[in-house]
Every structure is written in C-alpha cells, then in structure tokens.
C-alpha cells in the first residue's frame, strides 16, 4: 500500500481487506511526578463497519486511554504515544496534521462518555449543543441546525423534543441526558462510534433502554461501534467480538461466541466466572484474587502472573506474545491450550 501524505483524509469506505478501524501495537504513556505511567502497552484491535467490539477489563486497564488515543483527545503532554498506529480506512490517524485530525474527530469517529451530566456543557441549551455540530461542520444557519437537532432528539426518542430543545442539560433525567449525548455523537453519521461505559452512571432500569437504543442506531446506520463496558451481561447481547484488556495490554481477542464457550486466557476466565449466575445461587462468586498491576512497576514476565491460577515458572520471566489461536482469535497466555481445555494447572 502506498504511503499516505499527512494531509490526506482517509478515503470513504474500506480499502480491500483493511478494516474500518485498526489499532496496531499502540503504546501510550503519561509523564507524572511519580514516574512514567505506561497506561497502554501494545494494544491491537480492529473493527469492521456494522460490527460491535466490546472492550472489557478492570478499572485502570487502559480501556479509556486507548479510546482517547483513537479520538486524539489525550492531553499531550502529559500523554505521549511513543509507538503504534491507529488506522482509519487505511490512514494512520496518528500521522495526520492537527487540522486533518479535526476533520475526522466528531464527524467520522464520534465518542460518548460515561457521565452525561458532566460531559455536557452546563451553560448551553441541549439544542445549542447538538446544533453546534451542524453549524460548525456543515455551515448551517441557526434555524436549520436547530431543526436538525430536534430531529435527532426525536430519533433518540426524547419525548416532546420540540418543547425541550431549549432546555439545559440539568433539566433532564440521567437517561435522557445520555440520549442527548448520543444524539450529538451520531449527528453527522459517523462511521465509528466509541461508547465509553455509556450506561454505568444510569439507573439499572434505564441502562437496558439506552443500550437498546445504541444497538438499534448502529444497525440502522451500519456504524462500527466500540463499546467499553464492565457489564458482561450486556456484552453477550450486543457485541460481535470482545477484546479483553489487562495492565494496558490485550490479553484476549475473540468472537463473543468463542469467548463465552471457552475462554483462552485465565483472566478472561476469571471475569466470566465472576458474573452472577442464577444456577449458582448461594455459592461464592469467583472473584479474581489480588490487585490490578501497578503501572509504574509492572510485574516481570506475564503481568497477570501474581494472580494467575495457571502460572508456571517461565511465566515470571517470559512475557507471553499474543498467540494466534485462529484467524479471529488471540490469547496472551503461554498456556492457552490448558486454559481452553479447562484443566487447572
């Protein structure tokens, strides 16, 4: 493939086999007072149009930082991307000029955040904030842009959109606010939507409705969606494939079907076994013992070894590569075969 110039915008539609979005060996580090925090250490995942990729992993594993690197909204400094690529339709976004990057951000790759109350600007009406997308990026007049905003609010099923377009974010309920966030993100029909724990801040009853809305919008528009979540229950319903992160790395990449059938990494296995199950009522939940790794002082060898029930001696010294199990499946465990077969070391 020919090298793209830094000013060229990614072409519309896929190029041959190139996925819509491909994160390749991405590294992100933060210069902090305490030292260099290696938040992301070689993450790779990819996404096709119309596909939903769920990113799982405990708090601090680098899910959000990876997403922010894709969006290009990390504060640099303190953040630095020493290595890696984020290819969008074949173009490495990390090598684009800031202007070219701004053309992609929000228009072709959009993002929604966890807490819509703090993520929406408190001093502007929701109509103003949604219509800003059309005014700034499409050069629309105020009146037309607000009309578009009302249409979008209808589309994300906010009751009485027309009357509420001039309300402020704090006047809406949590679920409605997240819908507004979603309306703003899909305003310009992005090809990729990144949802970073979109339902975590919501009431349980509302969570399902918002997830349903996201899934529906994605089906209608054939967007690729990256869904960052803690909720394994949701994943089975909406995701096509899963990337599991641990300590800033991908430890397992697989289709939802494969992973639920038989995980190929001890950490994934631990995660799945910690889902409450009706048939195991009364029994203790399996919880992964130990603490998440300290990013300032990562364990040697396999980062998971202090907590791993499958650990062998070489795990302490040899860092496992991302082994290819099949064309669509990887695991970063020396003993993935044993884990797949289910016999505990």
């Amino acid at each position: 493939m020919s090298k793209t110039s830094p000013h060229a915008l990614p072409a519309e539609g896929g190029l041959g086999n190139e996925p819509l979005l491909a994160v390749d060996d991405l590294h992100v580090e933060f210069a902090t007072r305490a030292g260099l925090v290696r938040a992301v250490n070689g993450v790779s995942y990819s996404l096709q149009a119309g596909e939903t990729l769920a990113v799982l992993g405990e708090s601090g594993s680098g899910k959000s930082v990876t997403a922010q690197a894709i969006m290009g909204i990390l504060d640099m400094p303190p953040a630095r991307i020493p290595k890696g690529e984020v290819r969008f339709n074949g173009t490495d976004l990390l090598r684009l000029s800031e202007e070219a990057r701004t053309q992609v951000r929000g228009q072709r790759i959009a993002m929604i955040f966890q807490d819509a109350l703090s993520a929406l600007n408190p001093v502007f009406t929701v109509g103003w904030q949604i219509s800003e997308m059309f005014r700034v990026h499409r050069g629309m007049g105020k009146r037309d842009a607000v009309k578009k905003a009302v249409e979008l609010m209808d589309r994300v099923r906010i009751p009485g959109a027309k009357q509420r377009v001039n309300d402020y974010p704090h006047q809406f309920s949590g679920g409605m606010r997240q819908r507004i966030m979603i309306a703003m993100a899909i305003a310009l029909d992005p090809e990729v939507l990144i949802a970073d724990e979109p339902t975590t801040a919501l009431d349980v009853t509302v969570q399902a409705q918002v997830m349903e809305l996201l899934a529906e919008l994605q089906r209608e528009s054939n967007m690729g969606m990256i869904l960052i979540t803690h909720d394994l229950g949701v994943v089975a319903d909406v995701a096509d494939k899963i990337a599991v992160m641990y300590g800033g790395r991908i430890v397992e990449n697989a289709s939802v079907h494969d992973i639920y059938k038989a995980p190929a990494h001890p950490y994934t296995k631990g995660l799945l076994e910690s889902i409450p199950r009706v048939d195991l009522k009364g029994q203790d939940l399996y919880a992964i013992k130990g603490l998440p790794p300290n990013l300032l002082d990562m364990p040697t060898g396999c980062a998971f070894h202090p907590r791993c029930p499958y650990r062998q001696d070489n795990c302490v010294t040899d860092s496992p590569p991302l082994y290819e199990i099949s064309g669509t499946r990887n695991s970063a465990c020396h003993y993935w075969r044993e884990v797949l077969d289910g016999d505990q070391g």
Binding site: M71, L120, N121
Partner: peptide, 14 residues
C-alpha cells in the same frame, strides 16, 4: 480540565 471541554474537543471543534 472538565469533562465538557473534552466533549467539545471530541466534537471536532477547533
């Protein structure tokens, strides 16, 4: 530093 500034950046604003 606030979240809505991050949102504004993510909207592709200058």
């Amino acid at each position: 530093r606030s979240d809505y500034i991050r949102t504004a950046t993510a909207k592709g604003l200058s």
